[in-house]
Design a binder for these strands. Structure first.
Length: 461
DNA sequence: AGCGACGACTTCTACACTCG
DNA sequence: CGAGTGTAGAAGTCGTCGCT
């Protein structure tokens, strides 16, 4: 039972306990009464109980458990509505928060959760108005609901709406009050590392291996730094974590010593089956490198440490994880389920019938349809009067692409721009007069151009 | 009206690798 | 070594539905 003081506001730091602000002898009675009133109200939803609850609370100088507002009348929408109608929380700002939720189209299902957060501030802290919620107060308040790893405390059983509501309220506070750090900072959750989520292993077991993995990590380290180094550094930790979780399925005395472990065929379950299990139960192409990496490593270890050579005789007393045949079969199966990647982007071309149709639509009646599109017109100055001129660039561009297998960018590159009145100066970063021989081609040939394409003018050559 | 769950979707981040 | 790339999957968003 403790409270934290921030900027003159007290915040109850307990999820499930009341905090007494005044002498304890009377408060014991008060808490009992509040609990009793709460229970009564939750079952009867009797409006008069709300006033009694409030007056008892205010007189008792009591801070409610932090989870109170989230649990209160949960599961009884009717009671929650009666409660909401009979209580005036934060008269200065409550309505403006609610208005903000409507303005920003917050889905209906999340609004009550925002209200519960405001209730939590009202009942579990001494904050007396929305403008009292400074960044420090908000941060301290929010952090009470979270673990040190920034995850929401699992015991609270927050669902998506709770989390959304915290984000939304933080958004409102950010928009309403000047911020230094941002009200949304404490609300953010740092994501958990994904590596080893399925295997239950993390890279920690490679950095500081437990007793039964020490020798295996030594093998991994040597394999990585030696024979494998020349090939690639890809897939090293992941496959090993997977492997470590497979070893866990065998007795401690067997798995601790690689030579012992590999002295027998280990197939219950097999290495491949375990990888498939960890990956969701169905074989996928991405499992091949995982299986092969460890299988290669074990093959190498057996070759280095478990083969006896006497003259011409070569005897291996190590059992590889997969025989050559098994490996071939596994790879073939995996290849069959994985989708092949095209080596280049592919794009289905338009059927010739439709290409013809496009050309017809474009050119019919002297380009009538393209000329009907207002977006393809621009206004020029002809002897002091404004004149609407059709710009054929888009229509010609599309038509060109129906005749030639070109990309749009390739057609655009044909527009060199030397006839333009202005050119862009890279040095001074502004548009300057174009001084080349072909400059102003459009202006000089405008009437000719207009006549030629029936009201159109080429933008440049 | 509100609860809680669901599913389709987007966003974000740790990880592992590549490249210069 | 740091910047850049690609990926899986966790976190988060948001509308909807059945229910009380």
């Amino acid at each position: 039972m403790a409270a934290i003081e921030v900027n003159g506001c007290l915040i109850n730091s307990s999820i499930s306990n009341f905090h007494h602000r005044q002498n304890r002898s009377t408060n014991g009675l008060t808490v009992g009464k509040i609990v009793e009133l709460t229970k009564q109200f939750e079952s009867t939803a009797e409006p008069s109980l709300v006033a009694e609850l409030l007056s008892t609370t205010q007189n008792g100088g009591i801070l409610f458990p932090l989870r109170f507002a989230f649990d209160f009348t949960r599961g009884n929408p009717h009671a929650f509505r009666v409660f909401a109608q009979n209580i005036d929380v934060f008269p200065d700002g409550f309505e403006s928060v609610i208005a903000y939720l409507f303005e920003t189209n917050l889905s209906e299902g999340t609004r009550p959760y925002v209200r519960r957060i405001l209730y939590a501030l009202y009942f579990s802290t001494t904050v007396s108005s929305v403008s009292d919620i400074s960044e420090e107060v908000w941060t301290t308040f929010v952090l009470q609901f979270k673990n040190s790893d920034t995850q929401w405390k699992p015991s609270l059983d927050f669902n998506a709406q709770h989390k959304r509501a915290f984000s939304k309220l933080a958004e409102y506070l950010n928009a309403s009050f000047p911020t230094k750090l941002g009200y949304d900072k404490p609300v953010k959750v740092k994501r958990l590392a994904t590596a080893g989520r399925i295997t239950g292993k993390s890279v920690e077991i490679i950095k500081n291996p437990p007793a039964n993995l020490i020798k295996w990590v030594e093998i991994l380290t040597e394999y990585r730094s030696g024979p494998r180094l020349a090939k690639t550094t890809k897939y090293s930790n992941g496959p090993f974590l997977n492997f470590a979780s497979w070893l866990d399925l065998y007795p401690e005395d067997v798995r601790s010593d690689p030579k012992v472990f590999l002295s027998s065929h280990r197939a219950s379950p097999s290495w491949v089956d375990h990888v498939v299990d960890c990956g969701g139960g169905t074989l996928k192409g991405k499992m091949v490198p995982i299986v092969n990496y460890i299988a290669d490593m074990v093959d190498w270890f057996i070759e280095e440490n478990m083969v006896l050579v006497e003259g011409e005789d070569r005897t291996s007393y190590g059992h590889p994880l997969l025989t050559n045949l098994e490996r071939k079969q596994f790879e073939n199966k995996a290849k069959a389920v994985s989708v092949g990647k095209p080596t280049q982007t592919t794009s289905a071309f338009l059927p010739r019938r439709l290409v013809k149709l496009v050309q017809k639509i474009l050119t019919e009646d002297n380009w009538a349809w393209p000329k009907s599109l207002q977006a393809d017109y621009f206004t020029i100055n002809v002897d002091g009067s404004a004149r609407q001129v059709w710009n054929p660039v888009v229509a010609y561009l599309i038509y060109t692409m129906t005749e030639l297998p070109w990309r749009k960018i390739q057609v655009k590159c044909l527009d060199s721009g030397e006839g333009d009145a202005l050119r862009y100066s890279l040095e001074s970063d502004i548009w300057v007069q174009n001084r080349s021989a072909g400059a102003d081609y459009c202006q000089r040939h405008i009437q000719h151009a207009l006549d030629r394409v029936g009201g159109a003018t080429p933008r440049s050559t």
